[in-house]
Design a protein around this nucleic acid. Structure first.
Lengths: 232, 232
DNA sequence: GTCTATAGCATGATAGAC
DNA sequence: GTCTATCATGCTATAGAC
């Protein structure tokens, strides 16, 4: 179960350094720098800068000169970590996919009650995208311009998330906890609302809405719709 | 009132040619071609091609060579319609803004009942984005890389739409038709679901969901949440 | 009104000094 | 391991022929 945002965060132990250390080991063959500490430190800055620049101008519009300036590495130095610009995409995508899939399944698999399971899935996704907002935003925005193989991967992960939600709703229907004619549409709209949390981060921040509050709201909206006998 | 999709479409008389004719007159100073029929015909192809190419690779990744090839105009010929690549952005944005704002207000302003008003606003937005899907998608995707003035414009239009929804919900609360603690969040989630209709067009097409059906679904979800005494 | 040809420049990528 | 210097490429934008 997820208690609150703070405990979710520490459970995942999602420090940037840790993520980049994993990334470094996954891509040893690609990265020409052997000293782990130096490499990880530079990776953190490279990825931070890429997500930042891509968020403001788009990945394609960002030049490697922009990037090298922002992450305080020379062009030459940068090329010790990637062979080309597409490697950057791959580097950033790979870890996010793994983490999303892993997290969502881990938190939902042991829950029997469909209502609790749905609430948990929503909470887990919103908390995760809160911690990794730049990654989620990047992934959504750049998917369309990915080379075919990576594009398919990205779309598959998206569908997988929706299928998890869909599955939970169907369980609920089977157990007579939920009653609804178009369960697939409910899953889609759930996805849409969760998506808005990382796409329109600024808007919600201005309204001073917190992740926990938003998760509760989304769950409430869906539950009212899914409930078979609304408060008789 | 909106009867069905077909009548909405003919009411709006949204032929590409007509939109481009308006665009041509709005930008007479910019466009160096004096023969209206030729100019309008070429504008249709230029904009069609831009929306198409930008949707698949992103606006920045699309070169003017790609564009000129796709719209069957030489590079030189293309430059009779725009001074530079940014003019293209402006050309495409301007008309969409006007149309969205105008349509939403026109269909909602004379409705007194908040419930009917909300349903109509949702329907109008979904129908409009169905007719202009490539434009809505483009606008969403490219807003971030717009020059500051145009970026502000784009964000303002977005907020305006949300404010219209918010206003309707507040009217409903004042009239005791709706009861809800966080009306702003309801407006946001409404926007998020309407947005998904044009962002994930392919997904809904695969599920064979039609615009009318989707509009009804979104309205139902929100109404169940907004209703003060759920089916007592 | 549209074409072809090309100027001028910024970019991704590499090679070799430190 | 990182830097500076440089190359080849592909881009936007223009000039002048038709």
């Amino acid at each position: 179960m997820i208690a609150d945002f703070a405990s979710f965060k520490s459970d995942l132990s999602l420090s940037k350094r840790q993520i980049c250390r994993e990334l470094y080991h996954q891509n040893r063959d690609l990265i020409r720098v052997r000293n782990e500490d130096i490499a990880v430190g530079n990776l953190v800055r490279i990825i931070d800068s890429t997500l930042k620049l891509a968020a403001s101008k788009g990945f394609h519009a960002m030049s490697l000169r922009d990037l090298s300036a922002d992450c305080r590495l020379s062009i030459g130095g940068l090329y010790a970590y990637i062979r080309n610009k597409d490697d950057l995409l791959h580097l950033i995508q790979a870890h996010g996919f793994m983490l999303t899939r892993r997290t969502l399944l881990a938190y939902t698999q042991d829950i029997a009650c469909p209502r609790a399971k749905l609430r948990t899935a929503i909470k887990a996704h919103i908390f995760l995208s809160e911690l990794m907002q730049p990654w989620f935003y990047f992934s959504f925005m750049e998917t369309k311009s990915l080379p075919d193989v990576h594009k398919k991967q990205a779309i598959d992960v998206e569908l997988e998330i929706e299928d998890i939600l869909f599955g939970i709703i169907q369980e609920g229907i089977a157990q007579d906890v939920f009653a609804v004619e178009q369960p697939r549409l409910v899953a889609s709209s759930c996805k849409a609302m969760m998506q808005d949390w990382y796409l329109k981060r600024h808007k919600y921040a201005r309204q001073q809405v917190k992740a926990t509050q938003y998760a509760t709201f989304v769950s409430d909206v869906l539950e009212r719709y899914l409930h078979p006998t609304p408060k008789l």
